[in-house]
């Protein structure tokens, strides 16, 4: 029963990159199959161009056209490409010094076989068929002989830890589980690793009620990205009977004008056959109809 929960989790987002004058010009020109380097104050040429060189000096903004060819300075053969790699067949990563420049560019070399790769080898640039003003407008190199999308996609497998697992398992059975350090006696819902007042592990699990006091709340009237509900709706802090910390949930089943600090509320559970290891088993909290709790009885939770 206490097998640790686990679930896939994908972190994915496309950022909107402001590229500035130097990087922006370079990337925009790639669309037109134009390869340029930028001159540094001491007369070197950098490709890819940087706004600031390794001494921290701003580069001059003077661009020079370059031949789309260069020399491999170091390389690594990848027999089994990873998901984010530029090829799904074997290829090489390389540091490539473009002809006429003084630095090197990281890119891929489509060489077919590891045997064709050698430091010092000559390579030519292959343009991508479709271009969108990013470094991937250069498809790769092959042996010769100002906005940029920055997509991130990372696949994790996360678990909530022992205590939170116990909490979620409880919810699956329609119960609220809290944790306490037997010495301090305060009940934390959900249970955490340690009682902050003592530093001891919250080693005991206790069940608390699904009824409690609404201590404070807000009415949300603003739409925002990722929002699941349609405003307005009420969101509040509830100290369950037997708990010493609040949980947060939706408050419903009552007109917004009638929602009060100190109101007694009870969990409105989903039908039992829909229960999962989730706080979403509870649709919302609704008034019990009991008299309100006096302010003094919950003010320490505000």
């Amino acid at each position: 029963m206490n097998e640790i929960l686990s679930a896939p989790y994908v972190l994915e987002y496309t950022y909107t990159r402001s590229t500035g004058p130097v990087v922006g010009r370079f990337l925009e020109n790639l669309r037109y199959e134009v390869l340029e380097g930028v001159k540094t104050a001491d007369g070197r040429v950098l490709c890819p161009p940087l706004e600031y060189d390794e001494e921290g000096e701003p580069t001059t903004g003077e661009f020079v056209p370059l031949r789309p060819s260069g020399t491999v300075k170091s390389w690594s053969w990848v027999q089994e490409p990873r998901k984010g790699h530029p090829f799904d067949r074997p290829f090489a990563w390389a540091l490539i010094q473009i002809d006429g420049t003084d630095n090197a560019m990281v890119h891929a070399v489509d060489a077919g076989k590891a045997k064709r790769m050698k430091t010092g080898m000559r390579v030519r640039l292959r343009w991508a068929d479709e271009k969108n003003g990013t470094i991937r407008d250069i498809a790769c190199f092959e042996p010769i002989a100002p906005f940029l999308p920055g997509p991130v996609h990372l696949e994790y497998d996360v678990n909530p830890g022992k205590h939170y697992t116990a909490y979620l398992r409880g919810l699956q059975e329609g119960k609220f589980i809290g944790g306490r350090d037997p010495e301090a006696g305060k009940v934390y819902v959900p249970p955490r690793g340690a009682d902050p007042m003592t530093g001891n592990p919250t080693s005991e699990y206790v069940e608390v009620a699904d009824v409690g006091v609404l201590t404070t709340f807000t009415i949300i009237r603003i739409p925002f990205e990722g929002q699941k509900l349609t405003p307005p709706y009420c969101f509040g802090a509830i100290v369950l009977d037997g708990a010493d910390t609040p949980i947060y949930h939706l408050i419903s089943g009552v007109p917004h004008d009638d929602i009060r600090m100190g109101m007694r509320v009870k969990a409105k559970w989903k039908p039992q056959d829909e229960w999962e290891t989730s706080l979403e088993n509870i649709l919302y909290f609704e008034p019990t109809g009991e008299p309100d709790a006096p302010f003094d009885s919950y003010k320490e939770h505000l």
Binding site: R17, V23, L27, R82, M105, V106, H107, T134, L148, G150
Partner: peptide, 8 residues
């Protein structure tokens, strides 16, 4: 994030 991150 301009020159290397997009290559993976």
């Amino acid at each position: 994030p301009y020159y290397v991150q997009p290559l993976g």
